[in-house]
């Protein structure tokens, strides 16, 4: 099967970020999406630690340790940026003011349930951050992840087995193998990575994938 690289996946997802959107990119791989949004679209990026208008990584010599994003990476400000404190930042997230959030995930279920904050491994402390606030407040939740785990086990399930982040919150899943919408009837195929067949992708997916409508 044909598998997109992380960069290709970020580039594919970036095509679906419209001009004028307020967007929150989750920590880790989703932060790469902004590099691929077409330059003629003005998108303002929110970061939970108190900024709308996250700009590119600073050039050498211009780093400011008090200018970071939620991944703790050094950032600059984009035109139109604003700073605010945490209670306001989460009012922005919970209050429905952001248009799109892009998150990583351990598991997504066909009913839109998301598990992305804790596994069943008790050795490690759980860490939720702002994920639960984002999924209840942002109307459009895109998940960006590998289609299967490293051991080949499925991540797109009938029901999540890991602790949930939110119930019925995911709208669309972008994986290295395919793009799927979450509908009232379950996962529905939007597109396949070039070279893959629905049967191939279904074989590594626990939940049923409906053909494009």
């Amino acid at each position: 099967m044909i598998s997109l690289t992380d960069e290709q996946l970020a580039a594919r997802l970036a095509l679906d970020i419209p001009d004028g959107a307020y967007v929150n990119l989750g920590i880790g791989k989703p932060t790469h999406v902004s590099s691929y949004v077409p330059a003629d679209r003005e998108v303002l990026y929110h970061s939970e630690n108190g900024i709308i208008g996250v700009g590119p990584t600073p050039v050498e010599g211009e780093e400011d340790p008090e200018m970071i994003d939620a991944s703790k990476r050094l950032i600059t400000v984009a035109p139109g940026a604003a700073f605010f404190e945490h209670a306001d930042s989460f009012a922005i997230m919970r209050g429905g003011h952001i248009d799109i959030a892009v998150l990583g995930a351990y598991q997504v279920a066909e009913n839109g349930d998301l598990a992305n904050w804790a596994t069943q491994d008790e050795k490690f402390p759980p860490a939720v951050g702002g994920a639960m606030d984002l999924v209840v407040g942002v109307p459009c939740i895109f998940v960006m992840m590998k289609h299967v785990n490293k051991d080949g086990s499925p991540k797109l399930l009938k029901r999540c087995s890991y602790p949930l982040t939110g119930l019925g919150v995911v709208n669309r899943v972008y994986t290295d193998l395919a793009v799927l919408d979450v509908t009232p009837d379950g996962f529905r195929l939007v597109e396949l990575t070039d070279g893959n067949s629905l049967a191939d992708v279904q074989a590594v997916t626990e939940a049923r994938i409906l053909p494009p409508s």
Binding site: F90, K123, A127, V128
Partner: peptide, 21 residues
């Protein structure tokens, strides 16, 4: 992580926006 694994510290995890609010 060391203190947590050794059971030497109590942890209360709160979603970030709930913590702020």
């Amino acid at each position: 992580e060391k203190a947590y694994a050794a059971g030497e510290i109590a942890l209360e995890i709160i979603p970030q926006g709930t913590l702020a609010e």
